[in-house]
Design a binder for these strands. Structure first.
Lengths: 238, 238
DNA sequence: GCAAAAGTGTTAGAACTACACCCATGC
DNA sequence: GCATGGGTGTAGTTCTAACACTTTTGC
């Protein structure tokens, strides 16, 4: 092959247009369990199988916008937290044709979730350690998302997203234990989480899980947004 | 809007096919400097401007394969380390039309790089703190890749990729200092790097940078591949 | 003999882990 | 009054950061 034709082959080669999808791994937290939102797949191939929430990217919307559009439609929530996870691009990942899928993951406060959408879309929340076989490569996506969540949970205060505005320390600890699938010592956990100085202790107690009641806290959003630019503003060793 | 038409709109909406590209951020290390490989852009728009190495994904190749194909062509290296960075999908990121680009980054041992390819492709290595204005959103990509490299360097022994097979501890420290753009204490650095127990001290010395000479080391690839499955097998606090 | 880079050890502070008992209250 | 979950402190260990002098050898 000549030099010029090599260059041609690599750089001038006509692009072939592909379908681009987004799939969303949506996490929620309730009663000490980390949950994943799945729905019945609406299109071929594998129509009717459980799958992540997804759709095709349109020509006039960005990847982020497509993910937001789909997630907003499926949860009823606005301004939710959304992170890109990974682009899945195996040739045969979708048996119906060549589709590149960009996966996003999102943390949802279940109190804001519109439950009636479950029926509308034939969707459900399942426990994270009870995920059925999903369509295409969606199990792989969900597993990657869980790994990403584990990394994120140690460097960002993700309780912001998954818990109600007011929550107790035992609740927050249950969240971390669910994410890492591991029991933690409550004294050490509280020391580590409070050291970040992003929690405000309230005078109220939540008595829904014990007779004594546990103090409610809320995140100091002001303080967090002020120091957010500094990536090291939160850290919890797990 | 009726429920059914909402469902139609989200899930059945015809996918619109888009161009998908890969762009590669290629790092090298030489004489204490971290380097980035850039080349003259070969296609419109912004033809002739400096840019990352990239090309279009073909219908019969995965994203990874496309990145590998392009990188292999531009460096002459086989089996190089390649990590997906992020999918850039703003609508107007390519002024020539809608293109979603999946960015990959790679660490290259400059001893293996085929220098004659620089002329062939009109490419060059530039210092990481001396990056010119690049085409499209390529500066953003390069910055993200550097951040990813910083994260990676603390949890994976990336010296494997960027240094020759035999190297000295001062060399390795220069690499870390270049990645983090910060001077480090050599005693503490050596303690931390040696604690991972992945370096083998050789009897040879490299006298190219001092009269006394510095001991050469090599990575214990066997040990690393055995424990690689365990993500925590390497750690250096930076 | 001296300049230039390589090699080496200690100490004080911070962070982490492990661990057990009392408290408040609804029943 | 007792069962249940919530709250709290300490001691030993490990990790980290700061810091300076000696060694080697080509010139």
């Amino acid at each position: 092959m000549t030099t010029q034709s090599k260059v041609n082959n690599i750089f001038y080669k006509e692009g072939q247009k592909l379908l681009v999808a987004v799939d969303c791994i949506v996490f929620g937290f309730n009663r000490g369990k980390l949950k994943l939102l799945i729905m019945e797949r609406k299109i071929e191939p594998q129509k009717g199988k459980w799958s992540l929430i997804g759709g095709f990217v349109q020509k006039d919307e960005s990847l982020d916008q497509a993910a937001y559009r789909i997630l907003q439609a499926c949860t009823g929530i606005h301004d939710m937290h959304l992170d890109q996870l990974y682009a899945f691009g195996e040739v045969d990942r979708d048996t119906g044709g060549r589709v590149v899928s960009v996966a996003y993951y999102s943390l949802i406060n279940l109190e804001l979730f519109e439950q009636e959408l479950l029926k509308e879309y034939n969707a459900k929340w399942i426990n994270i350690d009870d995920i059925p076989e999903l369509a295409l490569d969606h199990n792989k996506m969900a597993n990657s998302a869980l790994e990403a969540l584990q990394k994120q949970a140690s460097i960002k205060p993700i309780g912001f997203e998954l818990l109600p505005e007011k929550f107790t320390l035992p609740q927050l600890q249950l969240l971390y234990e669910a994410i890492y699938n591991r029991k933690m010592d409550k004294r050490n956990f509280q020391k580590k989480i409070l050291k970040n100085d992003l929690l405000i202790k309230l005078d109220e107690k939540d008595k829904s899980t014990s007779k004594k009641g546990a103090y409610l806290y809320r995140f100091d959003l002001d303080k967090y947004s002020k120091i957010k630019s500094n990536e090291d503003s939160f850290y919890i060793k797990v």
